[in-house]
């Protein structure tokens, strides 16, 4: 089954839409879902032109395609457990919250909290992602626990905060403090970042680009070779964050260390 949701023009296009109902399992039987525009309750049809093509017997067979002005739609794919969502443009915050299986493909950019507290499945963002990609909720001790988030572009600050399982791959650059408070899982940063893995206690983070400023609380522990994007890199291995009794692993390109050694007295 293919469900095509095309946004209708709105009078106040900046008012956010919360649409946690847009998940494959909800389209098996009915289409009269409730979505919220600001503080108003709306019917799905009020905000979208809905087209349904073909049948489906299980959520696995449902594919939702979101097109139009989708950058203000929040919570798409929340608690999704099967099927596929393809977003032709940008998507609002909290896309793929708590998702446990299935696939979300975002052709544009994703706003903050992409895949927050994700349990499984896969999110592919072809554009850039906002802050707190693959992170957790305020006060909660665990962020993303499983699945994969892959961002082809850049990502914002605090990527994979409290990551405790699964894999986050950012091909572009990250902002400040990626992998902060990380406790498990894997974070791969293809580009540059700054102060990776502050306060980490577990998991593995790999920075292929320039790690920027490194925190003093990581202990050098040999080196290793890794492969990323078909290329091999010689990586320096650090353990930390020692300020937090951490046992995480941070891999930084050996050249980056050498080129930095002039200004960083520790290395």
């Amino acid at each position: 089954m293919r469900v095509i949701l095309k946004t209708r023009p709105r009078k106040k296009p900046h008012v956010p839409i919360e649409a946690e109902g847009i998940i494959p399992q909800n389209f098996l039987r009915k289409n009269d879902l409730t979505v919220y525009e600001g503080n108003r309750e709306r019917n799905l049809e009020d905000l979208f032109f809905v087209t349904v093509e073909g049948p489906a017997v299980s959520p696995d067979q449902v594919e939702i395609i979101l097109t139009g002005d989708t950058g203000r739609i929040k919570r798409v794919g929340e608690y999704m457990n099967a099927g596929r969502i393809i977003i032709e443009g940008d998507i609002g915050m909290h896309c793929g919250n708590f998702m446990s299986a299935g696939e979300i493909i975002i052709r544009g950019n994703a706003d903050a909290w992409l895949g927050r507290e994700m349990r499984g499945g896969r999110i592919l963002c072809e554009g850039t992602a906002g802050d707190y990609c693959g992170a957790g909720y305020r006060g909660e001790k665990r962020g993303m626990r499983g699945g994969t988030i892959e961002v082809m572009g850049n990502a914002g600050d605090f990527v994979a905060e409290y990551l405790s399982g699964g894999e986050v791959i950012i091909h572009g650059n990250c902002g400040d403090l990626p992998g902060v408070e990380m406790r498990g899982g894997t974070l791969v940063i293809g580009g540059n970042c700054s102060r990776p893995c502050g306060n980490m206690t577990g998991g593995t983070c790999m920075v292929i680009g320039d790690p920027g400023e490194l925190l003093p609380s990581f202990r050098r522990n040999g080196s290793t070779e890794v492969e990323f994007g078909g290329k091999k890199f010689r990586m320096a291995v650090f353990r930390g964050d020692v300020a937090n009794r951490g046992k995480g692993t941070l891999l930084v390109k050996e050249e980056a260390i050498i080129s930095r050694s002039g200004r960083d007295e520790r290395l």
């Binding site: 502050g198 400023e213 925190l215 003093p216 609380s217 020692v242 300020a243 937090n244 007295e265 520790r266």
Partner: peptide
Amino acid sequence: DYAVLTALRMIVRGKGDLVPATV
């Protein structure tokens, strides 16, 4: 500030050996 606080935490925890000449 973040790095300075981290360094102080390390010293208080007895991991001061890792602290570089300036933070």
